[in-house]
């Protein structure tokens, strides 16, 4: 059970960066929380009412106000600036893709479209599979995410990736998985009575296994 008291294993190229930010914020907030709570408990015990006690008349302290305002602002804005490049790298640009797909969400399945033998999406030989998302390990996967009906959200916890699928929009998404295995792809945005249980599987495979699976799939079409 104890191993579940922290983040699950990260298996993408950007997961260490996200986990670093999470850990950094965790320690900052943990220290601030501990300091505030200890101060509060000390004050609560030390200044509890006793016979003959009188409170000290203090109206405030402008220097302290300036101090804690500045320190808080510097830490928080610093965190935002530190996070900015990670975010831009994941959601704004990212590396050029090695393999390409189209992922279409619908109530209550993920449709994964593979480009077919010609290697191009949007042609007649495209192959669409429900819920099975096969990708090669250590390759940049790029896909266009959309939805046929309501908003869904593509979520792979181990990749640390979440992106809403919005009808009427093609949203570019990328990731690079670094460890082979099978991972669930739950829908993270409420999408109707079948929302719970809407899931696909991400198969991260070696290049050979991936090509093998593709060949099987294409020939059986």
């Amino acid at each position: 059970m104890l191993e579940h008291f922290w983040l699950p294993e990260g298996i993408s190229t950007f997961s260490p960066r996200i986990d670093f930010l999470f850990t950094l914020i965790f320690w900052i907030t943990a220290v601030v929380w501990a300091l505030v709570t200890i101060a509060m408990i000390v004050f609560m015990v030390k200044y509890r009412t006793r016979p003959g006690r009188k409170a000290t008349y203090i109206e405030g302290n402008p220097r302290l106000e300036i101090l804690w305002t500045t320190v808080t602002a510097v830490i928080l804005i610093g965190l935002a600036l530190l996070s900015r490049s990670t975010w831009a790298n994941i959601k704004e640009n990212g590396p050029p893709g090695d393999v390409f797909y189209k992922v279409t969400a619908k109530q209550f399945n993920w449709e994964i479209t593979y480009p077919g033998p010609d290697g191009k999406l949007g042609t007649a030989d495209d192959v669409t599979v429900e819920n099975d998302f096969h990708v090669p390990v250590n390759k940049v996967v790029r896909f266009e995410l959309t939805s046929k009906d309501v908003i869904h959200s593509f979520f792979v916890p181990w990749i640390r990736l979440k992106q809403d699928a919005v009808p009427g929009r093609q949203i570019h998404v990328w990731f690079e998985a670094t460890k082979k295995g099978q991972y669930e792809i739950p829908c993270a945005e409420l999408c109707g009575f079948g929302h719970s249980g809407m899931k696909g599987t991400l198969y991260v495979e070696s290049e050979q296994d991936f090509q093998h699976w593709l060949k099987d799939k294409y020939s059986s079409k």
Partner: peptide, 13 residues
């Protein structure tokens, strides 16, 4: 603060 950080929010949103 965790949620305000956009990359972390990508996981915990």
């Amino acid at each position: 603060i965790f949620m305000a950080c956009t990359p972390v929010d990508m996981f915990i949103h």
